[in-house]
Write a protein that binds this DNA or RNA. Structure first.
Length: 430
DNA sequence: TCTGGGGTCCTAGGACCC
DNA sequence: TCTGGGGTCCTAGGACCC
């Protein structure tokens, strides 16, 4: 059996942990640049606020309604999440952290227990110890556990935990679930299925294997098997990512090549730091730049390019060198750019890097490695971006001579304090 | 008139997830 | 004025190789 533990309105609940006045009110959390809604409390969902709704439209669509908005504060959410995950790890033998607000547990060897009771107690413990409300679904496959989790979330009678442990319960739950509610079926597939007269999960599960393979590819086929009780989405610890991406939209638009270079240099440095944190290195770097695709009235341009590095690397120096080369190839003067990003892939362990004869000298490599180590140590202690490479700075203040990294900085107008991780914020709150 | 079969790599895009 | 960011996996077409 698998259990899915899912935080209820995760980001909104995190905000409420430290600001109980938000309890019972419609709360939304916004994306970077306060662009659009990425999380909604139950009350906000009830109002009809849709996921990904642009923030500025809230006032137009809900005049006179008091909606509490917060800018996203990932430092806070990450810390609360790790507390929740650590309680889950103490309660189950095998835990797979699926996302910031979800974890799967493999309950193998716990068959003798009352799993419904186990789930209810775990949910109560997480609420009591961290203040985070969670819903738990338990079933023979992950896809069915996800479905059970939805029932636990939507019907208070389940007391935060829904168990699908018999054929009757499986059929019943599939028969009342629209296909769109199934994990792995998105809007496109749902529309297609509806076209063929398939509206419930049960109807999908009764189609032939060959038909599902043809219409929904091998991915859909896995979902179909899982709905039929055959577990085939295996345990994946996801500790080492296969690709790492850092990208941002610019608050306005950018036309200057050098300014874009500075942005992507920062993205590259961030990728390097993420690679070092998971003790790996990447051999391929992808750079992409794009104009604002929503502004159909403006000329559009979107381009990406792959650079194969001479040898896998996790040093900011080498990745920045690569984005510099990459940008020279794809940048075209004259467009209003809105977004740029760096993806690193071809990831291997940092201890097992295959040397390349044509790479930079081992002495230089060693210097870069030492510099990275110092950067990590300083930034761990003093906060991200305390120490950066020169290429990452936007300009130098002519009066003070100090480097500024915050030209065109991201907007976070309604950001809550980092209550649980930043000493100054903790003191201020007290 | 008549032109194979098998493979890799790259690019681009689509679909899904949170 | 104002529309996010980070992932995974799959497919299709083109270029190129033998």
């Amino acid at each position: 059996m698998f259990a899915l533990i899912d935080c209820d309105s995760c980001f909104c609940s995190c905000e409420r942990v430290f600001d109980p006045s938000l309890e019972g009110k419609p709360v939304v959390v916004l994306s970077n640049n306060d662009g659009c809604v990425v999380a909604r409390s139950k009350e906000a969902k009830a109002l009809g606020i849709k996921e990904c709704m642009p923030f500025y439209q809230l006032a137009e669509k809900f005049p006179g309604v008091k909606i509490e908005a917060r800018s996203s504060n990932y430092t806070l959410y990450g810390d609360i999440s790790s507390r929740v995950m650590s309680i889950i790890r103490d309660s189950a033998p095998e835990v797979e952290v699926y996302s910031i607000d979800e974890a799967f547990c493999n309950l193998q060897g716990m068959d003798h227990m009352d799993l419904k009771k186990w789930g209810e107690e775990l949910a109560a413990k997480i609420k009591k110890w961290v203040g985070m409300p969670v819903s738990i679904g338990i079933a023979p496959t992950k896809t069915l556990a996800k479905l059970a989790g939805r029932f636990a979330k939507n019907y208070p009678a389940y007391n935060k935990c829904c168990l699908i442990d018999s054929e009757d319960k499986r059929i019943k739950s599939l028969s009342i679930s629209p296909v769109l509610d199934v994990w792995g079926i998105g809007h496109r597939f749902a529309k297609k299925l509806n076209y063929y007269g398939i509206n419930t999960a049960l109807e999908l599960s009764k189609r032939s294997e060959g038909w599902v393979r043809k219409e929904l590819t091998v991915v859909g086929l896995r979902t179909w098997k899982e709905l039929n009780g055959i577990s085939c989405i295996s345990y994946d610890n996801m500790e080492s990512k296969k690709s790492i991406c850092t990208s941002r939209s610019f608050p306005g638009t950018v036309t200057d090549r050098d300014e874009i270079l500075t942005h992507v240099a920062n993205h590259a440095a961030r990728c390097a730091s993420k690679l070092r944190r998971q003790k790996s290195a990447a051999s391929i770097l992808t750079l992409f730049i794009a104009t604002n695709h929503q502004r159909t009235d403006l000329p559009q341009y979107s381009k990406s390019i792959n650079i194969t590095l001479p040898a896998p690397s996790n040093s900011a120096h080498e990745l920045i060198l690569a984005v510099h080369k990459a940008l020279d190839v794809i940048f075209i003067e004259g467009y209003k750019y809105k977004r740029a990003g760096v993806i690193v892939s071809g990831i291997c362990s940092a201890d097992a890097i295959q040397q390349n004869f044509f790479d930079i000298s081992p002495e230089l490599k060693e210097r870069y490695r030492k510099i990275s180590k110092v950067i990590d140590a300083v930034n761990r202690k003093n906060g991200d971006d305390t120490l950066i490479l020169a290429r990452q700075q936007y300009n130098t203040d002519t009066k003070t001579g100090k480097a500024s990294k915050f030209k065109n900085a991201i907007k976070h107008e309604f950001r809550s304090p980092c209550y649980s991780t930043n000493l100054n914020d903790i003191i201020r709150v007290k």
